[in-house]
Deep mutational scan, measured.
Amino acid sequence: MSIQHFRVALIPFFAAFCLPVFAHPETLVKVKDAEDQLGARVGYIELDLNSGKILESFRPEERFPMMSTFKVLLCGAVLSRVDAGQEQLGRRIHYSQNDLVEYSPVTEKHLTDGMTVRELCSAAITMSDNTAANLLLTTIGGPKELTAFLHNMGDHVTRLDRWEPELNEAIPNDERDTTMPAAMATTLRKLLTGELLTLASRQQLIDWMEADKVAGPLLRSALPAGWFIADKSGAGERGSRGIIAALGPDGKPSRIVVIYTTGSQATMDERNRQIAEIGASLIKHW
């Protein structure tokens, strides 16, 4: 067993022997301040990774656009098919120029040779490549099948209805392509620590998230040296922004954090800054 596999296998073990965790309302004060600064709703939840206990939450059962955070769930569904012998990570998928959609920095470079399922998941999570996500959605049967996968996990809230990039439209009061912070946090925890996926697939999923290259201005910008984070960000229309993450000190994750916002007129930089400040408060009061 590799060191990384050992780390993920012992996530519940280490967490069980940690000192009790206590909620700190100071972080919620910052979440509410972010709402004021952005002029928009902000949803927040913080779960203990081992027990699933909610440590703090704000608007945990209000719907927010998922945006690209759905790509972690998508690759979880792909990995479940791999575990069941219905898919192979090494299978190569070929596609054409007509398949390319807006923001496809990886797939646009491989029109000639195609990409493997493993490479597509890596591109979808680490670079948020939209064509990679659409190609992977095709392998599982489309958005409705991802929703069905989530329902089978016990998540009857999260739903995907459309493809990239239309799913980022974020129309107010439109339930399409949305989740709730509580539902997303619980589902992410199941994917990373539950028995739904094999140990190898859980490790692969967290490795992809740990290698995320496009979430630097968010929670990662607030992390002290030595902290662990595996995350996936999302951005959408109407001032929408979000991030889902597993993080913790001492090089291992111990909490799940989900943050979503929508309806702001603020710039992307300002949305990023507010999420980073929430992260800084979380870490300060850990």
Rank of each mutant, 00 (worst) to 15 (best):
R189F: 12
A16L: 14
E210C: 12
G279V: 05
T262N: 10
Y95L: 07
A16Y: 08
L38K: 06
Y44G: 02
T107Q: 01
G154Q: 09
V21D: 05
R63E: 05
L74S: 03
G154S: 08
S2N: 14
E46D: 07
K30W: 05
S80C: 09
W208S: 03
I259S: 01
L196F: 12
H151D: 09
D231A: 06
F22N: 09
A170R: 08
T262K: 08
P172S: 12
F58K: 07
H24T: 15
A16S: 15
I45C: 14
T138G: 13
E164Y: 04
E175H: 14
A84T: 14
S122L: 15
Y95Q: 02
E166R: 11
T139I: 14
G226K: 11
K252A: 13
D174H: 04
L199R: 10
H285D: 07
S96E: 12
A200K: 13
G114D: 04
L223G: 03
A84F: 09
D174L: 04
Q37G: 11
A276N: 09
M67Q: 08
D33A: 15
G76Y: 05
A133N: 02
D161R: 02
A16V: 14
E164R: 01
A170W: 11
I45S: 06
N134H: 04
R159H: 12
T261S: 09
I125Q: 02
L167I: 13
T178P: 00
L10K: 05
D83H: 04
A225H: 14
Q37T: 12
G194E: 14
L160M: 12
C121T: 04
C121F: 01
Y103V: 05
K144N: 14
A245W: 01
I171N: 15
Y44W: 03
S122F: 15
L192E: 02
I125H: 03
R255A: 04
L137A: 06
G85H: 11
N130Y: 05
P217H: 10
A23S: 07
T158M: 03
G263A: 08
T138S: 15
Q86D: 13
I278F: 04
F13Y: 10
E169K: 13
R271H: 07
G43C: 03
A211H: 14
H151W: 15
Q88F: 13
S96V: 11
I275D: 00
L120G: 02
P172N: 09
E119Y: 03
Q86L: 13
L137E: 04
S57V: 10
H5S: 07
D174Q: 06
I283F: 11
A230D: 00
R220K: 06
Q203H: 15
E119H: 09
V29N: 15
P20H: 10
S96N: 14
T158F: 07
V101F: 07
V42K: 00
I11F: 12
L196R: 15
I229C: 10
T116V: 06
V8S: 15
A9I: 13
P249T: 07
L74N: 01
W208N: 03
T147V: 11
E46C: 07
A9R: 08
R118I: 09
R91H: 10
A34T: 11
